[in-house]
């Protein structure tokens, strides 16, 4: 079972100094997975301008620090998200947009959409709202930046520590080998 508190994983000493630079220049992987992607252009452009904080879109996971999951994730897109996440380089963070990443949102009872993103990849920050508006996104970024500064945003370390647990969850969804409902349940 995952340890709830990750106190001992927090950054310390010199890492904290570097965190200032990491906080000030986060490159996000513009991986528009769900309906939240539409919220990002306004945050980037004139009105909210997230570039002020050094956050900008980047094309490849290799160069990105920030993975935005902007909405519901079906099983197939989860597979790609996991591969992209693993291709990103440490330190890396994940922000889950909207309720779909928290508890499945309006697709809570869908047979293909995952309910809790944090079961599969470590989520450093989730922004509520069925698609949060740019203000919410900006505050989200602020809180993430503070967490990084304090050294608490250590999802990537958690992922490394409890990799088997994450792997088990991922396999349960992606690599199933026998049907979910046993024949008895089907009868009713």
């Amino acid at each position: 079972m995952i340890q709830t508190s990750t106190k001992d994983l927090h950054d310390s000493g010199f890492e904290k100094v570097l965190n200032f630079f990491r906080k000030r220049s986060m490159w996000m992987l513009h991986y528009c997975t769900g309906c939240g992607a539409m919220e990002l252009p306004p945050t980037m452009t004139t009105r909210w301008d997230m570039e002020r904080f050094g956050i900008g879109p980047m094309a490849t996971p290799r160069q990105a620090d920030l993975l935005l999951i902007t909405g519901y994730l079906s099983i197939k897109s989860l597979k790609r998200v996991i591969r992209t996440y693993e291709q990103m380089q440490d330190p890396k963070w994940v922000i889950g947009f909207g309720s779909c990443t928290i508890n499945g949102g309006i697709y809570y009872d869908s047979y293909t959409v995952i309910n809790r993103l944090s079961d599969y990849i470590p989520v450093d920050l989730t922004i509520e709202g069925c698609m949060p508006r740019p203000e919410a996104i900006m505050t989200g970024f602020q809180t993430l930046m503070d967490a990084i500064q304090k050294g608490e945003a250590v999802g990537y370390k958690k992922y490394k520590e409890n990799y088997e647990w994450y792997k088990k969850n991922q396999d349960s969804v992606l690599g199933r080998t026998e049907p979910v409902f046993t024949s008895s349940e089907v009868k009713k």
Binding site: Y31, R62, R80, V81, R83, T84, Q87
Partner: peptide
């Protein structure tokens, strides 16, 4: 082969 392939395996 572990290359950026836009998420494709």
């Amino acid at each position: 082969l572990d290359n950026y392939t836009a998420g494709q395996d």
